[in-house]
Write a protein that binds this DNA or RNA. Structure first.
Lengths: 139, 139
DNA sequence: ATAAATGGTTACACTATCTGTAACAATTTT
DNA sequence: AAAATTGTTACAGATAGTGTAACCATTTAT
């Protein structure tokens, strides 16, 4: 699953949970709202549960519910919970095999460049809270 | 071909051309140095030719040569020449079909976010010249 | 003119990744 | 014990990326 798909799915689910807080919502409920398959919803929300962003309960009347105030939940936290790879992973091989020094040097140059970008993106994400997104939706 | 692969290939080729300036280098020569298939080299360099960054000549003693001073050629120009899509295109559908207003609103939010990132990346690219990259390689 | 060398373009099989879905195990509640 | 729910794994189909070849277009050299 691509990083952007996961993030988008997670945010849809989080918006839905925020609106129905504190009633638990099943993956079927969230699926209906978000138009994303219930199984995928569970896959992504299980990661948010591990990250402490969402709580889940089993059995009848079970489901998912927010575990953080929207004002205190920013996008970077969500992103970290669902993605271990780098956000915008790029195809610059870290070859272990023999490689020409110049090509290796170029690869490293690109890797550093993309690492910088990654940092910028995460900084931007830190400035966006779920609350802001919810406000945006109400406009 | 992914954006990062194209950019990386283009820069490898440009470095090689800069080092051998002003002698034309064939796609076979560049392929040998860059370890990238000659056909792919031609595919990417033909875009740089259209962008005015590289010149090409046919026939015996033909090949590719730089058409800009390394100090005046920045990465963003190269990127624009090889890529029409957005740099880090993300999977946020611009659905034309009926869609829930809230989901649509969320999609737009993400599109704006990613557009901002795109701008940042291009700004960063504008600050990197081929000359700088070449200096980095000589260290 | 002609042959040869080269760039330019298209096509294609192979691989890898992404997507949507189903199935079932694990857990909890009633 | 039964039912409802989350959590996890698996997999076929779709999509995109990669490496390569083939051939066309253009120019140069003789």
């Amino acid at each position: 699953m691509s990083a952007s798909t996961k993030l988008s799915t997670a945010v849809r689910a989080l918006c839905f949970l925020a609106e129905h807080h504190p009633d638990p919502q099943t993956s079927a409920d969230i699926s209906k709202f978000s138009e994303i398959n219930a199984s995928k919803i569970r896959q992504i929300l299980s990661m948010l549960v591990k990250g402490g962003i969402v709580k889940s309960s089993y059995g009848k009347k079970g489901g998912f519910m927010l575990n953080k105030e929207p004002a205190k939940l920013h996008l970077q936290e969500v992103y970290c919970a669902i993605e271990d790879r780098k956000a915008f992973y790029l195809n610059v091989s870290k070859s272990t095999a023999q490689i020409k020094p110049k090509l290796n040097s170029l690869n490293n140059y690109f890797l550093n460049f993309f690492a910088d970008i990654q940092i910028d993106i995460e900084e931007k994400m830190k400035k966006i809270t779920l609350e802001q997104i919810l406000l945006h939706l109400k406009q």
